[in-house]
Design a protein around this nucleic acid. Structure first.
Lengths: 188, 188
DNA sequence: TTTTTTATTGATCCGTCAATCAACAAAAAA
DNA sequence: TTTTTTGTTGATTGACGGATCAATAAAAAA
């Protein structure tokens, strides 16, 4: 039962986090959505914080898997770059709940060291992925470009959280591609 | 007394928000830092939410003033663009507390309509400022570029919230400038 | 079959906190 | 001076929520 319950709770947490748009979500709400009592949630995870962290790990590993999959399917720095971006804004990651949850993970990271660590891991991995694509393309400028591109992706996520209506992957990718294209010196 | 007390509370709110890194700041904490009782805080502002909104307006208007001032001092689209960026990352805005507060305003905007409205106003104004600089420089690509640049600025703020140590204005501006430079087709 | 482990919940405890209120002080107006 | 307005707080209320616990059922092991 344990793995099933935990998975249900993690999923429910992400939904509730996205719905509420803040960390002010009660364990009872989460448990209810996952179809169990709050006591059971506490039984499997020790605390509310642990539930949040599990949800964070889930989203992060989902994202990681998607990127890895996309990278495995293509060849060459430009194609790889594009793959990373498409994965970053794929419907799996770039959806209301996930975006809402994401924003809150940043907040969580302000107070919970483990959350901060997880977010740092994500940032470092993204950076190193971007760097390996950019280095062959823009040489020494790759470092700065990777920083900018990473920040840009996060910024697009952040702004999506404010918009209403369903997220628009295509437009998000287009916005980021605009940056990449000009960075690579290609004008259409 | 009213304006003095209110100002003190607003300032204290920003400090506490930055310190805690979340909206989980009690009225008592804020009031204490501002040198008064929580009851008095409630007396002058009706509710905690009003205090947050006042703090938000304060930061936003501070930012607006800085940008306006910087714009008034220069001429020509490129110089104006640079002025906006320098103002965005000037020590006045780009400091620990303000950045921490900023992140939380995004969270607040998820639930409080007025907060969302304020943030939208900021975004629109920034966008229109950027657009007026970019249009003469990159023509039809200006729209997308303005979106990207706006998101990039927010993204740099977001990431700053995660870093430890004092914010580094220079490096932030450099990162964003990297984008602008390549957008304008200028390689160094 | 008896015993132990696992799954589950309702009720409850304990702390926190926004908001209110009664009371008091002090300045301003009458 | 008396009265009113303004400034201020300690104490209290009422609600909420994380965590714990006692109790029950059901499955697994002995």
């Amino acid at each position: 039962m344990e793995p099933i319950r935990k998975a249900a709770l993690v999923k429910a947490t992400i939904v509730e986090l996205g719905r509420a748009g803040s960390l002010d979500v009660t364990v009872s709400q989460i448990a209810k959505r996952a179809g169990m009592s709050s006591a059971l949630a506490h039984h499997y995870f020790g605390s509310k914080e642990d539930i949040f962290l599990a949800a964070m790990r889930h989203i992060l590993s989902l994202y990681g898997a998607e990127v890895r999959g996309a990278l495995a399917a293509v060849d060459g720095p430009e194609a790889r770059l594009q793959a990373i971006l498409r994965a970053s804004f794929s419907p799996g990651n770039f959806r209301r709940e996930a975006v809402g949850a994401w924003l809150n993970f940043y907040v969580l990271a302000q107070t919970v060291p483990e959350a901060r660590r997880l977010l740092s891991v994500y940032q470092r991995r993204l950076r190193s992925n971007l760097l390996s694509c950019l280095r062959p393309l823009v040489g020494v400028r790759a470092d700065r470009a990777a920083d900018a591109l990473g920040a840009l992706i996060d910024g697009v996520y952040l702004r999506e959280a404010l918009k209403e209506g369903p997220p628009d992957s295509a437009s998000a990718v287009a916005t980021v591609m605009e940056f990449v294209a000009s960075e690579l010196g290609k004008r259409k």
